[in-house]
Design a protein around this nucleic acid. Structure first.
Length: 924
RNA sequence: GCCCGGGUGGCGAAACCGGUAGACGCAGGGGACUUAAAAUCCCCCGGCCUUGCGGCCAUGCGGGUUCGAUUCCCGCCCCGGGCACCA
C-alpha cells in the first residue's frame, strides 16, 4: 500500500513536462482549414509584452483554453492563436530608464513570456504567432491606410494635445498627473498640432445598428458602446450676432428655444478669439482655459467657469438680445463649439446661470402641472386637490387655496429658478404660438420654420468622434505619408511599403529618435520626385490591435488576408478585460467593416461571442513611516494572525515578526506591491492547480481575489482525484457490465439495464449524470467555470464515499472516474492527459475522445422534494412522486406538524402549488 | 462630472425564469492516525434565544409589487471599471 502510494503520488512537475512535450512533439494544436469539420475560433486578447506574465494574463488565457479544449472535445476544429501587441509607450520608458532600444527590450520580453505561456499548457497554435512590431505585419496596416486615404476615409486636421513646455514634447493622458507632466512636473498646456484621422463617424450608424446583431455580447458592453456612439437627433440653428456675423448652435431640445437666456461658446471658438482681440480680460480667460490636461474626466470635473464677451446674439424668433458668454465646459470638438443655454431646463446651464446670475425662464411644464392647469381652466374654483396632488408629484407645491393659472405657473417657475431645472419632456408655455405643444410637435414646427427661413436644419449628431491615429512617438508603426513642399501630403506608394521603423536607435532624452534623426525622414516626393520629408508620427497602437484577429487566419500571406480568413472568421469566442469595452472593441468592430469593404472578409462583425473577465485582485499590506509615507509589502512576505473564529486580527512581516498594516484588497499592481508572480505559483503547485484555482475562485466576469490558501485547496482536490483514479487504474479498462454503458445500453434494452441497480447505485449514477449535464452546460453555455468545478468536487466527495465493492459498484466507479477525467480535462489538461493513459486508453486525450454524454435514463427520479410555506415562511418539506396529483400534495403539506401549528386557528384562504417546487398556503 | 458594473457567513462564492438563502472551497474549532511533523481521514461551523424539539432575525440602506423577493420596481449609500488629445 505504502509502496503503491509512493509510485502513484501526483507529481505535477513530471506530469506537466511530459504532457507539454507530447503536445509539442505531435504539434497537437496546429490546425488547418477543413471544410468537412465545423470550425471554432477562440481568441483571447493579445498581451502587451511588459516583461512577465501576470495573473490577469493567466486568468484570461485559462478561460480561453478551457473553452478551446471543451470545443475541441465537442469535435470542432478549434483555432486558438497567440501573438504580441508589441508597440507602445512602456518600451520607450524602459529605453529611457535602462538604455535598451525598445525593439530589443520588447523581443526579450516576448521570449520570456512565450516560455511562461508554454508552461501553462495552453492549447495554442504557435505556428501562427507574430508580433505587431514585425514589418511583415505592419506593412499591411500601412497599405490599408494608403487605400483608405485614396478612398477618402482618412484626413488631416489640427487637433489639441497635452504639451509639456519643459520637455518640449507631447504627453499621453496617462503622463499627465494632476495637470502636470509626469517627468518634468511642468504645468501641462494644450497645443494644436496637425494629426491624421480615420473617419469612423462614417460608420457610426452601422456600428450602432450592428449591436443589435450581437446577442452573444454582454449587455453592459453594448450599452456602453451605444452611449459612446451617442446618437442624438436635433436642430442646427443660426443665431445672428448683433453688429454682424452669426453663431451656429446644435440643440437636441429645440422645444426649449424660447427659454434661451444666453449663448455659450468654446474658448477656441472663432467668435471668442475675435472678441478677445480687443479685450484683455477675455484674452486672459481664454489663456487660462489652455492650462491643464485634455482628458474628459479632467474637463468634466473642472469648475464650470465663464466670462461675458459683451456681445449679443439675436433670438431667431423674438429678436430679443441674448448675451454671448465664453464657457470652459463648451468644447470646440463637439457639435459647432457653441450652444444655446436654457437654464430652466438643463442642469449644467442652470448651474452656470445661477453662478453668474443670468436669467432663468420657464418654457416647459411637466405633464402633471399641465393637467392641473387644464382642470383649473375648466373650473377655477374647486380643483385645489387635483392641482396640489399634481404639483406635489413634480415639484412639491402646497396649494392651500384655489388660485389662478398664472399663479400656479409662477410657483412652478419659482421652483425651477430656486431648486433646479425641469429637464423632462413636457408641454410648452411662455412660447407664443408654440404654447401647448409637446416636444415632438414643437420640434417639428420649429424645424419646418427654420428650414423654410434657411436658418437651420434637422441634424443627427454623434458623440462619437473620428479616430485620431497620430501619435508623436517613436515605438509604433510609421504613418506612411510623405510631405512635399509642392504636392503636400502624399501617401507612400504601395510598392515602397513598408516604411520600416529603424530599430537600432538610442534614446537620448524624451524625444522620438525619428524626430531627432535628420536623415531618416529625408526622401523624395512620389509624385514630383522633388526633395520631401517623411511623417515622423506613428500610429495609435489600437491600429495594430484592431485587426490582429484576422491576420492569425492567414499566416504568411503576402496580402493582408487570404481565402483562409473566410473559413475561420468571424471569431466564435473573444475573451478579454472589461476595460476594453469601448475603445478597443469599437475599433475592432470598425476595422472589420473596413476589411469587409475592402473585400477581404465577408461578415459584418468580427466576433459573435464576447466574454469580459474581471480583474485579479489581492490584499495589500504596508508600513507607514513618521512622515506618512507608505512602504507596500508583498502578500508573500506577510503572516496573517486570526482569532479562534478564523477572523483576521492582524498581520506581521515574516522577516522581523513585527506588525504590518492591512490595506484594501485591490487590483494587483506594482504600485501597491500586491502582485503575485504566476511563475512562483506554477513552480510551487504546477500549472494545473493554478489554472483550476483561477477558474474556481470566482465566475469569469467578476473580480478574482488571489488567495494562496485557496490554491492549496485546489492542489488537495487534484491529489485526491489523482489517487481515486490511480486506485482503479489497475482494474480492466472495460468492466463487463453492459447495462451501465449508457448510450449502448439504451439501444440494447431501452434503458432497462439501470433497473437492475440498487437504490444506492441508482442514486450514485444519477448524480454522475446530473454532474455531466451541469458541467457541460456550465462550460458550454453559462461560462460559469466555478460552478462546474464545484459540481466535480461534489461528485468526487460522493465517489470517495461510495464503497460498493460489488461488480456493479466497481463498474459504476469506473464510469464515474473516466467521465471525470474527461470533464476536468479543459481545466487540468496535464493531469487528465496522464490519467487517461493510466486508465489504459491508447489514444491521447484530444479531439478523438468525445465529451461524456448524459444518459437520460439515469436521471429518472422516484420522488421529488417540495418546500411547504405558510404565509411565505418555510414550514417543512414533503417528498412525493413526481406526478402526484394536486390534492395529494395539498393533503401531504397540511399533514406536516409545522404546517398544522402555523395554520391552527386560521382559515386557509388560498393554496398555490408550483409543480416540483413549492406548496404555498395562505392563511389568516 | 458622465456612462457601465458590483455589494450575500470570518473569507472567495452558490442559488440559471420570482419558489427550501449560504452548494463548493478557504480559514477556524474538535477528534483520529503519527515518536514528531507533513500528508490523510472523520465531525462541527451565519447571528440571537432554547436543555432539547424548535423559534426568531438575516442577502448594503429605506420603501413598493407578490401567496412568496438575493432575484422585479422606486429612492438612497458605498466600492470598482471606462472616459477616445478635444460636452
Amino acid at each position: 500500500m505504502q509502496e503503491s502510494h509512493d509510485r502513484s503520488a501526483y507529481d505535477p512537475r513530471a506530469v506537466e513536462a511530459a504532457a507539454q512535450q507530447f503536445w509539442s512533439d505531435t504539434h497537437a494544436f496546429e490546425v488547418k482549414e477543413d471544410a468537412a469539420r465545423q470550425k471554432y475560433y477562440c481568441l483571447s486578447m493579445l498581451p502587451y509584452p511588459s516583461g512577465a506574465l501576470h495573473m490577469g494574463h493567466v486568468r484570461n488565457y485559462t478561460i480561453g483554453d478551457v473553452i478551446s479544449r471543451f470545443q475541441r472535445m465537442q469535435g470542432k476544429n478549434v483555432l486558438q492563436p497567440m501573438g504580441w501587441d508589441a508597440f507602445g509607450l512602456p518600451a520607450e520608458n524602459a529605453a529611457i530608464k535602462r538604455g535598451i532600444p525598445p525593439a530589443k527590450w520588447t523581443r526579450q520580453n516576448i521570449a520570456h513570456m512565450r516560455e511562461q505561456l508554454h508552461a501553462m499548457g495552453f492549447a495554442i497554435d504557435w505556428s501562427r504567432e507574430f508580433a505587431t512590431c514585425d514589418p511583415d505585419y505592419y506593412v499591411h496596416e500601412q497599405r490599408m491606410f494608403v487605400r483608405l486615404f485614396q478612398k477618402g476615409l482618412v484626413y488631416r486636421k489640427d487637433s489639441i494635445v497635452n504639451w509639456d513646455p519643459v520637455d518640449q514634447t507631447v504627453l499621453a493622458n496617462e503622463q499627465v498627473v494632476d495637470g502636470r507632466g509626469w517627468r518634468s512636473g511642468a504645468l501641462v498646456e494644450k497645443r494644436e498640432i496637425p494629426q491624421w484621422f480615420l473617419k469612423i463617424t462614417a460608420y457610426a450608424q452601422e456600428l450602432l445598428d450592428g449591436l443589435d446583431q450581437l446577442p452573444g455580447w454582454p449587455d453592459a458592453v453594448k450599452i456602453m458602446q451605444r452611449n459612446w456612439l451617442g446618437r442624438s437627433e436635433g436642430l442646427q440653428l443660426r443665431f445672428d450676432v448683433e453688429g454682424g456675423g452669426a453663431i451656429e448652435v446644435f440643440t437636441t431640445r429645440p422645444d426649449t428655444l424660447m427659454g434661451v437666456t444666453y449663448l455659450a461658446v468654446a474658448a477656441e471658438h472663432p467668435l471668442a478669439l475675435e472678441a478677445a482681440k480687443h479685450n484683455p480680460a477675455l484674452r486672459q480667460f481664454i489663456d487660462d482655459c489652455r492650462q491643464g490636461g485634455v482628458s474628459e474626466a479632467e474637463l468634466e470635473t473642472r469648475e464650470k467657469r465663464g466670462v461675458d464677451t459683451g456681445l449679443f446674439a439675436l433670438h431667431p424668433v423674438t429678436g430679443e438680445r441674448i448675451p454671448i458668454w465664453i464657457a470652459n465646459f463648451v468644447l470646440m470638438g463637439y457639435g459647432t463649439g457653441a450652444l444655446m443655454a436654457v437654464p430652466g431646463h438643463d442642469q449644467r446651464d442652470w448651474e452656470f446661470a445661477t453662478r453668474y446670475d443670468l436669467p432663468i425662464k420657464m418654457v416647459i411644464v411637466s405633464d402633471p402641472v399641465r393637467d392641473a392647469i387644464r382642470e383649473l381652466g375648466r373650473d377655477a374654483a374647486d380643483n385645489t386637490d387635483a392641482m396640489s396632488a399634481a404639483l406635489g408629484q413634480s415639484q412639491a407645491i402646497d396649494v392651500a387655496e384655489p388660485r389662478p393659472v398664472a399663479e400656479v405657473l409662477a410657483e412652478f417657475e419659482n421652483r425651477i429658478i430656486t431648486e433646479g431645472p425641469f429637464t423632462g419632456h413636457g408641454t410648452l408655455v411662455n412660447s407664443g404660438r408654440y404654447d401647448g405643444m409637446n416636444y415632438r410637435r414643437a420640434f417639428d414646427a420649429l424645424a419646418r420654420r427654420f428650414e423654410h427661413e434657411n436658418r437651420g436644419k434637422r441634424q443627427v449628431n454623434w458623440r462619437l468622434r473620428d479616430w485620431g491615429v497620430s501619435r508623436q512617438r517613436y515605438w509604433g508603426c510609421p504613418i506612411p505619408v510623405i510631405y512635399c513642399p509642392k504636392c503636400g501630403a502624399v501617401p507612400v506608394p504601395e510598392d515602397q511599403l513598408p516604411v520600416k521603423l529603424p530599430e537600432d536607435v538610442a534614446f537620448s532624452g524624451v524625444r522620438s529618435p525619428l524626430k531627432s534623426d535628420p536623415e531618416w525622414r529625408k526622401c523624395s516626393c512620389p509624385k514630383c520626385g522633388g526633395a520631401a520629408e517623411r511623417e515622423t508620427d506613428t500610429f495609435d497602437t489600437f491600429m495594430e490591435s484592431s485587426w490582429y484577429y484576422a491576420r492569425y487566419t492567414s499566416p504568411g500571406a503576402a496580402t493582408q488576408l487570404d481565402a483562409r480568413a473566410d473559413y475561420w472568421l468571424p471569431v466564435d469566442q473573444y475573451i478579454g478585460g472589461i476595460e476594453h469595452a469601448i475603445l478597443h472593441l469599437l475599433y475592432f468592430r470598425f476595422y472589420h467593416k473596413l476589411l469587409r469593404d475592402a473585400g477581404l472578409v465577408h461578415s459584418d462583425e468580427p466576433a459573435t461571442n464576447l466574454l469580459c473577465q474581471g480583474m485579479v485582485i489581492a490584499e495589500t499590506y504596508f508600513r507607514m513611516d513618521a512622515s506618512g509615507n507608505k512602504t507596500w509589502i508583498n502578500p508573500a512576505d506577510v503572516d496573517v494572525q486570526r482569532d479562534p473564529k478564523g477572523r483576521v486580527v492582524g498581520a506581521t512581516l515574516k522577516a522581523d515578526g513585527r506588525p504590518v498594516s492591512i490595506g484594501a484588497t485591490e487590483k494587483m499592481s506594482k504600485s501597491k506591491n500586491n502582485g503575485v508572480d504566476p511563475q512562483l505559483m506554477i513552480d510551487r503547485y504546477g500549472a494545473d492547480t493554478v489554472r483550476l484555482f483561477s477558474m474556481f475562485a470566482a465566475p469569469p466576469d467578476q473580480s478574482l481575489e488571489w488567495n494562496e490558501a485557496g490554491v492549496e485547496g485546489m492542489a488537495r482536490f487534484l491529489r485526491r482525484f489523482w489517487r481515486e483514479v490511480v486506485n482503479i487504474a489497475g482494474s480492466p479498462p472495460t468492466v463487463s457490465l453492459p447495462p451501465l454503458a449508457g448510450e449502448g445500453a439504451r439501444k440494447a434494452d431501452g434503458g432497462a439495464g439501470a433497473g437492475t441497480l440498487s437504490a444506492a447505485q441508482k442514486a450514485f449514477r444519477r448524480q454522475l449524470h446530473e454532474t455531466i449535464g451541469k458541467v457541460t452546460d456550465d462550460i458550454g453555455r453559462r461560462r460559469n467555470f466555478n460552478t462546474a468545478i464545484a459540481a466535480l468536487m461534489e461528485l468526487l466527495n460522493v465517489v470517495s464515499k461510495f464503497t460498493d465493492a460489488s461488480a456493479a459498484g466497481q463498474a459504476l466507479r469506473r464510469e464515474a472516474l473516466e467521465a471525470m477525467v474527461l470533464l476536468l480535462n479543459p481545466f487540468t489538461p496535464h493531469a487528465c492527459h496522464a490519467l487517461w493513459q493510466a486508465l489504459g486508453h491508447p489514444e491521447a486525450l484530444l479531439e478523438d475522445v468525445p465529451w461524456p454524454r448524459v444518459d437520460a435514463a439515469a436521471l429518472e427520479r422516484a420522488s421529488v422534494t417540495l418546500a411547504v410555506q405558510v404565509n411565505g415562511k418555510l414550514r417543512g418539506t414533503v417528498e412525493v412522486a413526481p406526478d402526484a396529483p394536486r390534492e395529494r400534495l395539498e393533503a401531504a403539506a397540511r399533514a406536516l406538524p409545522g404546517v398544522i401549528n402555523a395554520i391552527a386557528g386560521k382559515a386557509v384562504r388560498k393554496v398555490v402549488i408550483v409543480p416540483g417546487k413549492v406548496v404555498s398556503i395562505v392563511a389568516n
